[in-house]
Nucleic acid binder design. Structure first.
Ligand code: FES
Ligand code: FES
Lengths: 152, 152
DNA sequence: ATATATTAAGACCTTTTTATCTTTTATATG
DNA sequence: CATATAAAAGATAAAAAGGTCTTAATATAT
């Protein structure tokens, strides 16, 4: 029931691409890594895998970089997680029991279940583009940086 | 927002003690480890720490073992987690952002928050003994073993 | 064509988590 | 008091996760 750090980075940076990139405006790992404050070479690795998984796109060379095509934007956040972590992590019992279902619930199963359904539903049913729109419309942020309060 | 395996083992085995042990009936690591299917020496280490944290009790020698005193039974599941993992893990943002609060919510914050409050509340407000009663009354199980269906 | 920018690929390193092993210490019981 | 039994302590090992570095491939602009 938890994401690896890798998945988290992948989600944030893909959402970043959704918001800031296009086929005519590609972005380099370096810029993204700095923007969302994630280790550069680690993100590069993740991006390679996301490209192989056809979740994001890339071109090499000058003015190259990473971006989302229309088609990429129709993938889901769950696709990202599946690509990086696989799906088992998300379905695991919160206390680590071998199965997680209502038939053999662990002590916290019925607290966890509604949450799991809620978050899984959202990750499964919204496209990356829709998800991204929801974020920008709500003015949420996509960085791991500390938000330094502005005193001015 | 996730527990380490160590915490999970600790929770399960403490609940096991709540259900099966008493000051007059102590249980060895070996028995517990086999019952809930957890690596024996690893659990032994965890138990040492839980004893130091006064969450469970132990005596050495013949007929020794681990058990809960009345006082132990009044601790909470959150105490177990705090003792093993610390509290930061539980409070972390689901996407790994630096702060998790309503003022600077991440894209999934408002899905995660009610769950977090629910589970944290339960872990904080019920004693281990209460928690355990709730479990036994509902016939839930405390093992990591595969539940082999009984065909008889 | 060539230089350059940028990703791709793979080997490698570090840290954290999980797990084991060995020795010491305490204690109940005969 | 001797012995057996079980936990405590500490050293070590194995595995997984996270992170880095170096070299190759490739697309673009000049
Ligand atoms: S969360 Fe434990 S069985 Fe579902
Ligand atoms: S879960 Fe991400 S900010 Fe609260």
């Amino acid at each position: 029931m938890m994401l690896s750090r890798a998945s988290k980075y992948a989600i944030l940076s893909t959402l970043f691409l959704a918001e800031h990139s296009s086929e005519t405006h590609k972005i380099s790992v370096k810029v993204i890594a700095e923007s969302i404050d994630v280790p550069n070479p680690f993100l590069a690795k993740l991006f390679q895998q996301l490209v192989r998984g056809k979740i994001i796109s890339s071109t090499k060379g000058p003015n190259g970089g990473f971006y989302l095509t229309k088609k990429n934007g129709k993938r889901t956040v769950l696709d990202i997680i599946e690509n990086i972590d696989g799906l088992t992590r998300l379905n695991e019992c919160f206390l680590g029991l071998s199965e997680c279902d209502g038939a053999n619930p662990c002590p916290v199963h019925f607290i966890v279940e509604p949450f799991k359904n809620g978050i899984l539903g959202k990750f499964r049913d919204l496209t990356i583009m829709e998800f991204s729109k929801e974020i920008t419309s709500q003015g949420r942020k996509l960085t791991l940086k500390d938000i330094t309060p502005e005193f001015k």
